[in-house]
Amino acid sequence: MSENILEVTDLSVEFTTYGGTVKAVRDVSFNVERGKTLAIVGESGCGKSVTVQSIMGLTPTPPGKITSGSAKLNGREILGLPTREANQFRGVEIGMIFQDPMTSLNPTMTIGDQIAETLMVHRGKSRRDAFNQAVELLARTHIPEATKRAKQYPFEFSGGMLQRAMIAQSLACGPAILIADEPTTALDVTIQAQILEIMLELQRTENMSIILITHDLAVVARIADNVAVMYAGEIIESGSVDDIFYQSAHPYTVGLRSAMPSNTGDRDKQLLPIAGSPPDLFSPPKGCGYYARCPYAMEACHESAPDPYTLTEGHIARCWLHHDDAPPTDVIHRVTR
């Protein structure tokens, strides 16, 4: 049993727009263990970014609003802190990198200065010391000729190099958690592997936790310890990577798996896209959000939202199929009590 460094419970986030209120994140709970990787997966627009950005205090308010929930970092509440206090953990205890490294760095500041800035602000270092350390950080993310590179501007870097610089920057203060929001989506396939490799390497040396947001289940299978599957603003299944892949307990997770190519035998396996699209978050259905697309849907699913069922220690699924009265199915892993 390892220690939870971040505990998020019942987080809900709304956006007020001209079209109405978007309930982007609904009652999301998850834990991040020290030194482990939590992967958050789900299709586009399901609220993954909003979830992590709310924890970091990065959602724009207004239009955004955290309506409920808590997030405890080492037991300390960090949700809804005023900027000054939030800045004591942002960039210090939690580092963050984003999807598009090309636009995530200030185009008119050298890479070295941007990394050094974090150290100057949080560690009170002089500009020279901070810059030297920035060069070291760049070297640790395997950027060749780091001394020279630190003096260059973002437009002189390639995408992969920029993402490394972003990692170097988020690692500057030795954070306990690194949040990576689709860190490889904008990059070439070959570079993707390198970036993940660097992240894993640093995780080992620093004993750092990672929250990895991705669409790529293959990546999840390779590096995640725990997985949270999000759908329409909710976590519909969470558990260890083995739970999710080998004992999938939610029809959506099953659907995701069938939509994913695998390299283990089974050459004839057909990739099955999930038909339909997620529900409108302006007015989420009162029943299960997956009802419209679920091949196992039952009348009950339409009427009321499924309860979370704890199947084994740490493996939770929100689906009526786990109700004792529900008919058994062939693919859904069930625990009968």
Binding site: M56, N87, F98, S104, P107, E117, V121, H122, S170
Partner: peptide
């Protein structure tokens, strides 16, 4: 609305610093 402003906030910089060092210049 640029991404690098979000990055700067995620770095834990003060709003003043973000304004002068990152926003204004660009």
């Amino acid at each position: 609305n640029e991404d690098y402003i979000k990055t700067a906030r995620a770095k834990g910089l003060s709003p003043q610093r973000i304004f002068f060092k990152h926003q204004l210049r660009n």
